[in-house]
Simulated assay, not measured.
Amino acid sequence: MTSEWTPSSADGDASNVALLQLTSYRRAEAVVIQAAGEVDVSTVDQLMEAVTVALATKPERVVLDLGAVRFVASCGLRELLRGHAAAVSDGIRFIVAATDGALRRSLEVTGLDHELETFDSVDAALAAN
């Protein structure tokens, strides 16, 4: 299953669509969500909608690939934690992949690197036991 995610907007304004592109696909017992662009107050709901849809399919794990994300605001970090909590409550692993550079530093400074399961790549996240 490969799907191109087209974010919805409550007011019909799609001006923030270009700021974040999301693609999701199933790989074995996982749903991988690839994000590209920026996660901020104008796009965080789109990301969380994709996570919610992925969790609803009840996979073994959801892997959020942030390798092409240039920026994550504090609201995005908060929603990563909420996505993790929702997954864990349903017995689903929630993994953040391709965390390097500024994103890794943000996770370390906030302590989220100890709360979230992270891997350097999607392949590593999918291979993990």
Rank of each mutant, 00 (worst) to 15 (best):
D11V: 02
G76P: 04
V69T: 08
A73H: 13
C75T: 14
V17T: 13
V72W: 13
R78K: 14
G76C: 10
F71H: 14
V63F: 01
S9M: 00
L107Q: 09
A30E: 08
V39T: 11
S24V: 03
A50N: 08
D11A: 02
L80T: 06
S106V: 03
R105D: 01
R70N: 09
V72N: 12
N16V: 05
T99R: 01
Q46G: 11
V44D: 13
S89M: 01
Q46D: 15
R93G: 01
R93L: 05
D40Y: 09
V44C: 12
R104G: 03
G12E: 06
A10D: 12
R105K: 11
R70S: 06
V31A: 09
A56R: 13
R70Y: 02
A85S: 07
S15W: 01
A73F: 04
D100V: 09
S106N: 06
D13G: 03
D113G: 00
A36C: 04
L64D: 04
V32W: 03
Q34R: 12
S9T: 00
V32G: 05
L81T: 12
D13P: 06
S15I: 03
T23M: 09
A36L: 00
R27N: 05
R26I: 09
V17H: 06
A50C: 10
L22G: 04
F71P: 01
R27K: 08
V17N: 11
S106T: 05
E49K: 14
H84A: 07
D90N: 08
D100R: 15
V44N: 12
L55M: 10
A30V: 02
A97P: 07
S42R: 13
A56S: 13
F94V: 04
L103W: 09
L77Y: 11
K58A: 15
I92D: 12
R26M: 07
N16L: 02
G37T: 03
A86H: 08
R78F: 04
Q21P: 01
A97C: 05
L112D: 06
V31I: 15
R104Y: 00
R61F: 00
E79G: 08
L47R: 06
V88N: 06
L107R: 10
L55K: 11
I92L: 08
G76T: 11
S9F: 00
G12Y: 01
L55C: 10
R78S: 14
V72Y: 15
E29G: 10
L66T: 03
D45G: 11
R82P: 02
D65Y: 02
A10S: 12
V88A: 06
I95F: 01
V32M: 11
L80K: 12
L81G: 09
S8L: 14
L22A: 04
L22P: 05
V17R: 15
